[in-house]
Design a protein around this nucleic acid. Structure first.
Length: 565
DNA sequence: TTAGGGTTAG
C-alpha cells in the first residue's frame, strides 16, 4: 500500500474508529453494518476491517459489500471487492455475485462475464442471481438479442432455474424494444410453468406486480391501449393490485400523447383506490401540460405539489423549465433555473441541456455557450444528448461552421458514431446552403460503417431539393427501398414539396398514388403548397380526385384551406 | 428485478 493510500485511510478512519470501538467489536459486525447509513461510514468501516488482524470473515466483508451495493454505489462496491481480493480474503459465491451485479449496473457487463469465468475457474457454480444480473446488464446496454440468447441457454441447458426476477428482467428488456408479443408470450410461459404438476424449485414462479408493470408500461409506450387495458384486467384477475408505479405508467403514457384529461382521470382512480400519487406521477402530468403548451396549468400542478406535501425535485424543475423553453418563455425558464438552486437542488446534465437548448432557440448563442462552460465547472459532464443539442443549436443559428468545427474536433469518438449527430449536421449544412458539405457528411457516415436511417435520407433529400438538385433527390429516394430503409410519409412530403417548388411535375401524380397506396396523407404545409399550384393552374386538374383522398379528415374543415375549388 | 425530465427530418 502506498503512502497516499495509507494516509487517506487514516484520515477517513479517524471519526468512525472511535465510535465503533466504543460500541462494538467485529464479532458483532452485523449490527455495525446495520448502523451504516452512508457511503463514507461504509468506506471507513471497510478500512478499519482491513486493518484488523486476524481479518474479519468473508461474511462480514460481504455484508458490507451488499450494503454499499444496496446504496447503489456500484463503483465503490466494486472497488471494495477488488481490495478484498488483494487482501487475500477468499471470495465466495456471494461476494462474486455482488461484484457481477455491480459490473452490470455500471454498463460493464463484459467485466461481469469475465467474473463469471472466474466462477467457473474457482468451481463456484453460478446461481440464478448471477444470471439475472448478467441478463439485466445486457438489457441495460440494449443488447437484447444477446439477452435472449442467454435466457434461452439458461432454460435449455438447465444452467439454473429462472426465478421471477429472471423472467421480469427478460420481459422488461423485451418491452424496452417494443417486442410486446414476445414479452406477453413469456408471461404465458410463466403461467404455464406454474401449472405443471411438478415444479423443480420449491417456489412457483408467479407473475408479480413488477411483471405486469413492465408489460403495461411497454404496451402503453407503443400506444397499444387495448392490450394494456386487457393486461390491467388480467392483473386484477390474478389478484395483483396495481401499485403507484402501475398507475403512474398509465398517467405517463397518456401525458406523452397529450391526453391530460385521461391522465387526470387515472390519478383520480388511483386516489379512490387508496394509492397516493407521488412526485413522479405529478412530474408526468406537468410534462403533459407543457407538451400542450398549457403553461398556466402546468404551473398550477407545480404549485399544487407542495400543498400535497410533496417536494418538487430536479426532474420537476427540469420538466417545467423545458415547458417554458419549448414555449419560448426563456425568462420564466431562467427563473426556474435560478429558483431550483436557491431551493438547494443541483441542476443536472438534463437541466443544463434543456436550458442550453432554450437559449439557442431564442438565438442567445452566447448565453448557451456560457452555460456549457458553467455546466463543466459544476462537474456535470455533457453527454450525447447535450452534444446533439449544441450542434443543432449552432446550425439553427447559422453557425454551421462552428458546429462542423466542433464535430471535427470531437473526431472519431463514440459521440460521433451516432446517426443522430449526422442527421443534425446534414440538415444544418443543407439549410445553410452547403449541400456539398451535407453530401460529404453522408458519404462519411457510410464509410464509417454507420447506417443511415429514414431521417438521414429525408434531410439529405430535402437538401438536394432546396438546391434544385431533383435528380439527386430522386436517386436517393429510389435507393431507400433497396437499402432496407423504406421511405416514410415525411419522405414523400419532402420530395413533393421539392418538386412543386421547383415546378417539376412529372413524378407528382405517381408520388401521390404511392402515398395513397401506403395510407399516407398530406400535412398542412404540403397541402397549402398544392392548393397554390392548383389555384395558379399549374397542376392538371385530373389529379384532384387523387389529391382529395390524401387530405386528412382533420384538415378538411380548416377554414384556411377550404376555398381552393 | 418495475416508473419520471433534455438531441435529429416534414
Amino acid at each position: 500500500m502506498n503512502l497516499a493510500n495509507s494516509l487517506l485511510i487514516k484520515f477517513r478512519g479517524n471519526f468512525i474508529t472511535k465510535s465503533f470501538l466504543l460500541h462494538s467489536n467485529f464479532s458483532t459486525n452485523r449490527s455495525m453494518v446495520d448502523k451504516i447509513t452512508n457511503l463514507n461510514d461504509a468506506l471507513n468501516l471497510f478500512d478499519e476491517m482491513s486493518h484488523t488482524r486476524p481479518l474479519p470473515s468473508i461474511v462480514q466483508f460481504t455484508q458490507l459489500l451488499h450494503l454499499v451495493t444496496k446504496m447503489k454505489h456500484f463503483s465503490s462496491s466494486l472497488h471494495l471487492f477488488n481490495q478484498m481480493c488483494s487482501l487475500g480474503v477468499p471470495v465466495d459465491k456471494y461476494s462474486i455475485s455482488i461484484a457481477i451485479k455491480c459490473c452490470c449496473q455500471l454498463y460493464r457487463t463484459k467485466d461481469g462475464f469475465a467474473l463469471l469465468g472466474c466462477c467457473f475457474r474457482r468451481a463456484i457454480p453460478p446461481n440464478v442471481y448471477i444470471f439475472s444480473a448478467l441478463l439485466d446488464g445486457l438489457v441495460l446496454e440494449d443488447r437484447i438479442l444477446e439477452a435472449e440468447i442467454l435466457f434461452k441457454k439458461l432454460i435449455k441447458q438447465n444452467l439454473c432455474e429462472p426465478s421471477v426476477v429472471t423472467y421480469n428482467t427478460m420481459i422488461k428488456g423485451l418491452c424496452k424494444f417494443g417486442y410486446n408479443v414476445t414479452a406477453v408470450a413469456l408471461l404465458r410461459l410463466m403461467e404455464q410453468k406454474n401449472c405443471q404438476p411438478k415444479m423443480v424449485s420449491d417456489k412457483g414462479i408467479l407473475p408479480n406486480v413488477i411483471t405486469y408493470n413492465s408489460l403495461i408500461c411497454g404496451l402503453c409506450k407503443f400506444g397499444r391501449w387495448d392490450e394494456a387495458s386487457k393486461m390491467l384486467k388480467q392483473m386484477e384477475d390474478d389478484n395483483i393490485s396495481p401499485n403507484v408505479k402501475t398507475f403512474t405508467a398509465l398517467v405517463d403514457a397518456f401525458c406523452k400523447e397529450g391526453k391530460v384529461k385521461e391522465a387526470e382521470a387515472v390519478i383520480n382512480i388511483m386516489i379512490e383506490r387508496g394509492k397516493v400519487p407521488n412526485i413522479v406521477t405529478y412530474n408526468s402530468l406537468i410534462d403533459g401540460y407543457c407538451l400542450r403548451g398549457e403553461m398556466i396549468k402546468a404551473r398550477e400542478i407545480f404549485d399544487s405539489i407542495t400543498l400535497r406535501g410533496l417536494v418538487p425535485d430536479v426532474v420537476t424543475y427540469s420538466s417545467l423549465l423545458n415547458g417554458y423553453c419549448k414555449n419560448l418563455n426563456i425568462e420564466k425558464a431562467e427563473e426556474m433555473f435560478h429558483e431550483m438552486t436557491v431551493k438547494g437542488l443541483k441542476p443536472d446534465v438534463v437541466t443544463y441541456s434543456t436550458m442550453i437548448q432554450g437559449f439557442f432557440q431564442v438565438g442567445r448563442c452566447v448565453a448557451a455557450r456560457r452555460l456549457v462552460d458553467e455546466m463543466h465547472a459544476q462537474g456535470q459532464i455533457p453527454d450525447q444528448c447535450t452534444y446533439g443539442i449544441v450542434l443543432d443549436g449552432l446550425c439553427n443559428n447559422h453557425l454551421v461552421e462552428d458546429a462542423l468545427s466542433l464535430f471535427y474536433l470531437v473526431g472519431n469518438s463514440k459521440l460521433n458514431s451516432d446517426i443522430a449527430v449526422y442527421n443534425i449536421l446534414i440538415d444544418g449544412a443543407g439549410k445553410n446552403g452547403k449541400v456539398e458539405v451535407a453530401r460529404i457528411l453522408f458519404q462519411g457516415l457510410i464509410d464509417k460503417g454507420l447506417q443511415p436511417d429514414v431521417r438521414t435520407y429525408n434531410v439529405m433529400i430535402s437538401g438536394f431539393c432546396r438546391e434544385g438538385q431533383l435528380g439527386e433527390a430522386k436517386l436517393l429516394f429510389l435507393k431507400m427501398e433497396e437499402s432496407g430503409c423504406p421511405p416514410n410519409d415525411v419522405t414523400y412530403r419532402v420530395l413533393l414539396q421539392g418538386y412543386l417548388k421547383n415546378r417539376h411535375y412529372d413524378d407528382v401524380e405517381m408520388l401521390l398514388q404511392e402515398m395513397d397506396d401506403r395510407g399516407y396523407s398530406l400535412d398542412a404545409s404540403t397541402l397549402s403548397l398544392f392548393i397554390d399550384h392548383i389555384a395558379a393552374g399549374l397542376l392538371d386538374r385530373s389529379m384532384l380526385k387523387l389529391f382529395g383522398k390524401l387530405v386528412p379528415k382533420e384538415l378538411l374543415n380548416d377554414p384556411s384551406l377550404c376555398d381552393w375549388e
